[in-house]
């Protein structure tokens, strides 16, 4: 199967599940909202985002998580990130991420697409 065909299947599957297709470029601009607490490559007030997709919540070594996040038993993927980013305090009550959330579905999809793409970037590969 060609790459284009694979992409078509993936996009088709996402559409079937009601997922929006994210634009990483738009997501990069949205990621600027995270800069007070997060960076891709290192822990700050919040944990680093390199390697986020596929990672168990509350598992970055050296970062001090809330008890709530440690107990969350989530694995970060597009669906769990979408749910968390929509309303962090509701998704994981007790999280220290005191943020109302990214309420727009397309913005969340864009942001997740950027984090996913950035995870494959040189900045993250070097970590």
């Amino acid at each position: 199967m060609s790459a284009a065909a694979v992409l078509a299947v993936v996009v088709g599957a996402a559409a079937a599940k009601g997922e929006l297709t994210g634009d990483p470029k738009a997501g990069e601009a949205i990621y600027a909202r995270c800069f007070a607490c997060h960076a891709l490559a290192y822990n700050r007030t919040g944990p680093k985002h390199c390697g986020l997709l596929g990672r168990r919540a509350g598992s970055v070594a050296g970062f001090e998580y809330s008890a709530a996040m440690k107990r969350a038993n989530w694995v970060w993927n597009r669906q769990t990130l979408d749910r968390f980013l929509a309303d962090p305090l509701k998704a994981v009550p007790g999280t220290t991420m005191g943020y109302a959330g990214v309420k727009d579905r397309q913005e969340r999809a864009d942001l997740i697409a950027y984090i996913e793409q950035a995870g494959r970037s040189e900045v993250c590969r070097a970590r």
Partner: peptide, 17 residues
Amino acid sequence: AMLEKGAVSAYLGAVPV
């Protein structure tokens, strides 16, 4: 400037909660 912009967004996200 990047940190300050992030701070604005962070407080904006904190105000409603």
